[in-house]
Design a protein around this nucleic acid. Structure first.
Length: 893
RNA sequence: GGGCGAUUAACUCAGCGGGAGAGUGCUACCUUCACACGGUAGAAGUCGCAGGUUCAAAUCCUGCAUCGCCCACCA
């Protein structure tokens, strides 16, 4: 038997957290079984970037997953929480490039091979930071299985997927307009471009006709691109330009002559109705150019500077400098008609915020349509469920309008594209094994594509690549599809939709049964927290100040579905108080439990009403919290546990049980009370454990009747005669009566300014036989909780002289205040009470006087209102009678 | 341009067809043998505005206003 050690006066999280986390890890309590008779429950963590530092988003995300995992572990599942990190191509490359810059060098000087080595070194040194931080959150990840998207195994999965999709024609290479970041010097996917409204200008420029007088005036926001124009387009329906189609215009500032074409794409109402066409630098123009067989002239290079093709006057100039010069030059020629202010959305690189340039370039693409159709179908038919379902629409809209995915990046950190070109015959070779000679011409001079894959390409395989695919592992069989994916909506497209596509295509089954989309943690203005904005609250600071449990409980309590979370230290503090409350409840309970350890473990022959009441309340909490967690109503579960622990277990039960434990009672009574106390406290700890793992383990270890870690405990049943946790309405009703009478007496004390230490006497005229019996039985408890020396229950009782009156559920309560009763105050108190009743009565009688209500409202509603009306009226009558008598007394005086 | 969400007590937010709720803060009283990171009691809201549906609306519908977010190749 464990000896009882006194607890510190307040909960000190620091060393407790460290101690138990190390214990759990060393005991292997986070480990999943590859084969098990238990049902499986699995989650793959959204892999944080290796460059990442734990922020609020991670903290919330990890907390919710940990709650799910711990709950299911307690509920008897074989749980796998697969951890890992993402190599984060551009982000990580940028970090190491900045380091090189600080050393006065750059990646080109270092060379590709050495550079990649440097990144690996960086990863080795700093890549584990976020993992350590997740551990401080208490995350029960199966750490020995930790994966990294650039691991050998995951790289093999990437290779396999690329090769198969290529041979299915779902990956292709081609010259298209893509988004180009001139600073990162790489292509970006459409998703990786963030559109920000910018105050710009709309310039109107005249292109003179090549033959004859006059010209056409076009409008543009990017005048420098005119150097790459290869046509001007007008709408064939546009009367202003009938006859222009087929003519040619001189392109100013160049010596080129370009055609005027007609296309219904052109919007008559925008600008001048004439559109300059720059196929190399605008996606729409590119489409027009293809349709009309126009050439492409690339005037902006990969470095964001003008090319030779832009002409000698502009070549080498920065694109924005060139814009100024083009405008000035046009003005000098008298061809600039007008400059209007014009706000429009401009694309920025999501990694470095540089303005993105649409550029014609040879890139690799995934043909997404066939894959997207599978992903749509899986949600439509319910194989995967998105929670909350408000996100379905967003998910469908995006997938239905999906465009091909540009997956090649011109950086060095990432999965190298497994494509080789034969120098001899020009054939592309894409195979699982690195080719040594060309299968077409036997040529041996083969060069591998220099590009790497989009980071999200490997992320898309995460649910199965981490489990060993393409090998058919036990892990995969046991845990795929995963139970749920927990993530914020900001990566719904980047990641979730793509995992759906890849998972269904390659595994023939969805990657997860549920997708739970949680809130974003935002700053005070509702903005996304980000380092660059400097508006972050550091989770680690929160942990240091408030403790992990308080932090986690706060996050869970505010994680209402579909709503963002605004956090502040102050709000977390309230939950630290809650943890401390639990701690102090233990400080009270543990000595009593340790005093009778055998009673704590043995079911008593009978239990008091109080015992049955608190066990019943616990039963109801258990019945609510389990389903709440399963359905991702974390705030509901946390709220119910908070309410029960503080306001039922501590406020009422612990206060009421004290006399039994402290005073002269029989051993049987004390044993029964201790058993109940131990049972309920143990149940509270177990139910709270998913939310607050550290403090519950610490206290669990101090209970004499428990063995081993709380992580090995069982989630309690809400209906178990063995433990005594069963619903008992009669006990609940009886205690409700006690609570009502006690509260009424306390109210009189408060309102009449009677000291809490003053001992009073009271009598009750019960509403009927049932309450009379209940009140008589519970008189001891009522006296104790209301600090009464006497309590008489008498059906014929009259209001004693000089007493204050209250009514609860038809029971009239008289608190004797002889000598100290202030009649004016009592009058005021009663009038206030009657005023409230009148307000409520006016509502109920309005309903009952409404014929439509009587005719159409359901029977049960009508009965409820009638009962309400009767109770209110009865209470009002009793209080009014008292008030009248007081008035008589006052009249006499 | 399209879509989504929010608007409830001073603050932060639950509730989402039948008696307006919680936490924090506030007021009064209390250091009583778990806890002042506490206890007891109390004050505090025309549930954004205007219509509509319903016997009944904070809750459903429509419109408006304000705020926020996401998506989007109108030069």
């Amino acid at each position: 038997m464990k000896p009882y050690e006194e607890l510190a006066k307040a909960y000190e999280p620091k060393d407790v957290e460290k101690r138990w986390y190390e214990f759990w890890e060393s005991e292997g309590l986070f480990s999943a079984q590859e084969k098990s008779g238990k049902p499986s429950y699995s989650i793959v963590i959204p892999p944080p970037n290796v460059t990442g530092m734990l922020h609020m988003g991670h903290a919330l995300n990890a907390t919710l997953q940990d709650i799910l995992c711990r709950f299911h572990k307690l509920s008897g599942y074989n749980v796998l929480w697969m951890p890992g990190t993402d190599h984060a191509g551009i982000a990580t490359q940028n970090v190491v490039e900045r380091k090189l810059a600080a050393e006065g060098t750059d990646r080109h000087a270092v060379g590709r091979e050495k550079f990649v080595e440097r990144v690996w070194e960086w990863r080795k040194e700093y890549g584990g930071i976020i993992i350590k931080q997740l551990k401080r959150m208490g995350a029960m990840c199966d750490w020995p299985r930790e994966r990294f998207t650039m691991d050998e195994g995951l790289s093999r999965a990437v290779r396999k997927v690329f090769v198969e999709l290529y041979h299915h024609g779902l990956i292709y290479q081609g010259d298209y307009i893509i988004n180009w970041c001139p600073r990162c010097r790489t292509a970006l996917a459409d998703l990786e471009v963030e559109h920000e409204p910018l105050a710009g200008h709309l310039y109107q420029i005249t292109y003179p006709l090549a033959e004859g007088e006059g010209g056409l005036t076009v409008a543009t926001t990017r005048p420098e691109t005119m150097l790459g124009d290869t046509a001007v387009a007008v709408n064939p329906e546009d009367p202003r330009y009938s006859g222009f189609s087929g003519k040619r215009v001189k392109l100013p500032l160049t010596d080129r002559v370009i055609p005027v074409i007609a296309d219904s794409y052109v919007d008559l109402s925008f600008g001048t109705g004439a559109l300059k066409v720059t196929p190399a630098h605008d996606p729409n123009d590119f489409t027009l150019g293809q349709k009309h067989g126009l050439p492409s002239v690339k005037v902006i290079g990969d470095d964001g500077r003008m090319t030779e093709e832009a002409g000698a006057a502009y070549a080498g100039m920065d694109r924005f400098e060139a814009r100024k010069k083009v405008v000035a030059d046009l003005e000098a020629l008298g061809l600039l008609q007008k400059i209007d202010k014009h706000e429009h959305a401009v694309g920025h690189c999501y990694r470095c915020k540089t303005i993105v340039e649409p550029n014609l370039s040879k890139q690799w693409f995934v043909r997404t349509k066939p894959l997207a159709d599978l992903a749509i179908e899986a949600v439509r038919d319910g194989r995967t469920r998105i929670v909350p379902d408000t996100w379905n629409k967003t998910y469908f809209d995006w997938l239905e309008n999906i465009r091909d995915w540009c997956i090649s990046r011109q950086i060095w950190w990432g999965h190298r594209i497994p494509a080789w070109t034969c120098a001899a015959c020009g054939q592309i070779i894409v195979e699982m094994e690195d080719p040594v000679k060309c299968p077409h011409c036997e040529g041996t001079e083969l060069s591998q594509d220099t590009d790497v894959l989009d980071t999200w390409f490997s992320s898309a395989l995460w649910p199965f690549s981490t489990m060993g695919w393409p090998d058919q592992t036990d892990l995969l069989h046991t845990f795929y599809p995963t139970s749920v994916l927990v993530t914020a909506f900001d990566i719904l497209f980047f990641w979730v939709a793509r995992m759906m596509m890849m998972g269904i295509w390659f595994l023939k089954d969805v990657p997860f049964r549920d997708v739970y989309i949680h809130a974003l943690v935002r700053d005070a203005e509702g903005k996304k927290m980000s380092k660059s904005k400097g508006n972050v609250i550091d989770p680690l600071e929160v942990i240091d100040v408030q403790g992990t449990d308080a932090f986690r409980f706060t996050l869970a309590a505010f994680a209402a579905q579909g709503r963002d979370i605004k956090l502040s230290m102050e709000r977390i503090e309230g939950f630290r108080h809650f943890i401390n409350k639990l701690w102090n409840a233990a400080r009270f309970a543990l000595p009593h439990i340790h005093a009778r350890p055998e009673a704590a473990a043995k079911k008593p022959a009978s239990r008091s009403v109080l015992d049955r009441y608190i066990l019943s309340r616990l039963s109801r909490v258990i019945a609510k919290v389990g389903p709440d967690i399963k359905e991702y109503r974390f705030n509901e579960a946390a709220g119910a546990l908070y309410q029960f622990t503080w306001h039922e277990f501590c406020d009422w039960y612990l206060e009421a049980v004290k006399p039994i434990l402290y005073q002269d009672c029989t051993d049987e009574e004390k044993d029964a009370a201790v058993n109940t106390l131990a049972t309920v406290f143990q149940g509270v700890l177990t139910c709270l454990h998913p939310f607050t793992p550290f403090v519950t383990e610490e206290l669990w270890q101090k209970l004499p009747q428990t063995e081993g870690s709380i992580m090995k405990a069982s989630w309690p049943s809400s209906d178990d005669p063995e433990t005594g946790i069963v619903a008992d309405q009669e006990a609940e009703d009886t205690i409700a009566l006690v609570v009502g009478v006690v509260t009424a007496v306390r109210n009189i004390r408060g309102e009449m300014n009677i000291s809490p230490s003053a001992v009073l006497s009271a009598s009750v005229r019960p509403s009927g036989e049932k309450d009379a019996a209940g009140l008589s039985r519970m008189a001891g408890m009522i006296k104790n909780l209301a600090r009464l020396s006497e309590l008489s229950v008498d059906g014929a009782a009259h209001r004693p002289k000089g007493s204050a009156t209250a009514v609860f559920a038809g029971n009239e309560i008289f608190v004797s205040l002889s000598g100290v009763l202030d009649l004016a105050k009592e009058t005021e108190r009663l009038q206030k009470e009657i005023g409230k009743l009148d307000k409520d009565l006016s509502k109920t009688s309005a309903k009952l006087n409404n014929e439509d209500f009587l005719a159409k409202a359901p029977e049960e509603v009508r009965q409820k209102v009638v009962a309400q009306q009767e109770e209110l009226a009865e209470k009002r009558d009793k209080l009014t009678a008292t008030l009248d008598r007081i008035k008589e007394i006052q009249a006499v005086q």
